[in-house]
Amino acid sequence: MSRIEQLLQQIRQLEEELLLELNQRSQVIGFTIKGKRVEFERSIRLAHKRLKYGIWRWLFGIRPINIITAPIIYAMIVPLVLIDVLVSFYQYTCFPIYGISRVKRDHYIVFDRHHLSFLNIFERLHCLYCSYGNGVVAYIREILARTEQYFCPIKHARKVLGTHERYYQFIEYGDATDYHQRLQQFRKNLAKEE
């Protein structure tokens, strides 16, 4: 096993430990997840309702610049929806042709924060927007990562910031040894994924 593979394995183990720790923290906060639904203990639900800012209190507490820039921020929903539709269409039409397993959209775009009873309607809208926007970007990133793995699983010569998880397993820049055989293996691996 190469040093990179060892480090990737350590990262995966740390991610699993982090998930366990986060799950334990959710028990301390007092909620459980049943299917796609989150349920809080009764005492927590009551506390949340007491902590909720009413609409008028919230409106008078925000900076005027936030209200002025809101149309600019929320206008981004148009390109987000458009790219979501286009990339989903691309995936559903092309991935089966190439034998690439599809990315499950609902693993990336998750709506649950708007159910928090301590949020008012505007805060819930903000949470819906951010959940959708960040979820779409993560969803698209995974689709493009699988595309890159299929067509060009080669690292760049220069360091690239914000690379996807698959990138570290790609072929080193300039390493032509058995390139086409390794490319076929990368492609076979894509077909096996969930």
Rank of each mutant, 00 (worst) to 15 (best):
A176E: 12
E39Q: 13
F95Q: 06
P79M: 07
V110C: 13
Q181G: 01
R158C: 05
A47F: 05
A157R: 15
Y108M: 07
I55L: 14
T32R: 14
Q10I: 04
A138C: 07
F170T: 05
G35H: 03
F118C: 05
Y132H: 10
V136Y: 02
T147V: 08
V38Y: 11
L46H: 11
F60K: 13
E16N: 06
L128A: 00
Y98N: 08
F95D: 02
T32A: 05
Y132Q: 02
V160S: 03
L8H: 11
F170W: 09
E41P: 04
S117A: 12
K34P: 00
A138K: 04
N66P: 02
T163Y: 07
V81Q: 06
E21L: 11
N23F: 14
S117K: 13
R113P: 01
R182T: 13
L144C: 04
I83V: 15
Y179A: 03
E16S: 06
S101Q: 08
D112H: 11
L190G: 03
F151T: 02
N23P: 10
H114A: 09
S131V: 03
S117G: 00
A157E: 15
E194H: 12
A145T: 11
Q27C: 08
R124M: 04
C130I: 10
K34W: 05
K34C: 12
K34F: 01
R3C: 08
Y139N: 02
K155Q: 13
G174T: 04
Y139G: 00
H115G: 03
R102Y: 01
F111L: 04
R102D: 00
S88N: 10
C130G: 10
I77N: 07
Y132M: 04
L20F: 09
L20T: 08
T69E: 05
Q9L: 12
Y92P: 00
C94A: 05
G99E: 09
R57Y: 02
E41H: 11
S26E: 14
L7I: 15
E15Y: 00
Q185N: 09
D175G: 01
Q13F: 06
Q24K: 12
D84N: 13
L86Y: 05
E17V: 05
I77H: 06
Y53G: 12
R37L: 05
R102M: 09
L59R: 10
V160R: 09
I33Q: 10
R124F: 02
V136T: 13
E123Q: 15
F40L: 04
A47H: 02
L8W: 01
R45C: 05
G162K: 11
P79V: 08
P96S: 01
V110D: 13
K192W: 08
I4A: 10
N120V: 01
R166I: 04
F40H: 12
I65V: 08
